[in-house]
């Protein structure tokens, strides 16, 4: 990891959903990073007031560039500026990439089960992209729970990957509203769906769960009850038990 604060150039800002943007940054001197790591972003106002928040890296690029995807939180302090106030050519202060636990390494040949709730897909996307870019033969599965079709990140990339790749399987869960013609009604991810689509505990997959705290608590508990070993489950939570933060 690179220590301390560094200046990053904003190269590109892309619309991911109506409330989320993917921001491509160049961090001079960066030489790649681990899939699943995050960066800290510091914004400073003209009077010197500053605010810091952490964002997961979504990309798996080898050089000095990386992407984050930021969802605008209604009561957020930093995310509204990143989503609506940032343009290519701007500069940001960045610390990291950071983190050595919620990461996937290409030398790990276990099957990988990824389970995302909403914007929790971001660090898992970095793992999927790192896996696709590698020769790692293990199978990846993503179970992605979203409120409605419009709030999904990376939809076209994920769907085209699931069609073309033998190493990647994608399952959607819609909790509030399904796309037209979807075979099942909207609803929360239940125990039966979870057990039918995730790798069975017998093959000891590496499991990564990321999302709001309530989602991760519920999913991780069910996985343990279904027989997955707690030490094979890595989790990243955001917010309190009641939802957003």
């Amino acid at each position: 990891m690179r220590s301390g604060w560094n200046v990053a150039d904003v190269l590109e800002v892309r619309v991911e959903t109506p409330t989320a943007r993917t921001i491509r940054l160049r961090l001079p001197g960066l030489t790649g990073h681990l899939a699943g790591q995050h960066i800290d972003v510091r914004l400073t106002a003209e009077d010197g007031y500053s605010a810091v928040r952490s964002y997961s890296v979504a990309s798996a690029l080898p050089g000095d560039e990386l992407e984050i995807t930021v969802e605008e939180l209604a009561d957020g302090e930093v995310s509204p500026y990143l989503v609506t106030g940032l343009s290519p050519g701007d500069r940001l202060e960045v610390r990291g990439p950071i983190g050595g636990w919620f990461v996937w390494r290409p030398e790990d040949h276990s099957p990988v089960q990824l389970i995302a709730g909403g914007s929790g897909v971001v660090p898992l996307m970095a793992m999927i992209r790192a896996h696709e870019a590698s020769a790692n033969p293990s199978e990846f599965r993503l179970l992605y729970s979203v409120r409605d079709p419009e709030s999904a990140f990376y939809r076209s990339e994920l769907e085209s990957m699931s069609r073309s790749s033998h190493r990647f399987t994608l399952t959607w869960v819609y909790t509030r509203r399904v796309p037209p013609g979807w075979p099942t009604p909207a609803g929360r991810l239940d125990a039966a769906t979870l057990e039918s689509v995730v790798f069975p505990p017998g093959i000891a997959p590496a499991v990564y769960v990321c999302g709001a705290t309530g989602f991760v608590e519920a999913i991780a508990d069910r996985l343990v009850q279904a027989g997955h070993s707690p030490d094979r489950i890595r989790a990243e939570r955001y917010g309190g038990m009641d939802g957003s933060s």
């Binding site: 343990v224 890595r234 957003s244």
Partner: peptide
């Protein structure tokens, strides 16, 4: 470098024992 929260976020590395 800190900001206030009224919430009580949960940070844990795995399932809750």
């Amino acid at each position: 470098g800190q900001h206030l929260t009224e919430d009580f976020p949960v940070l844990s590395a795995g399932p809750t024992p």
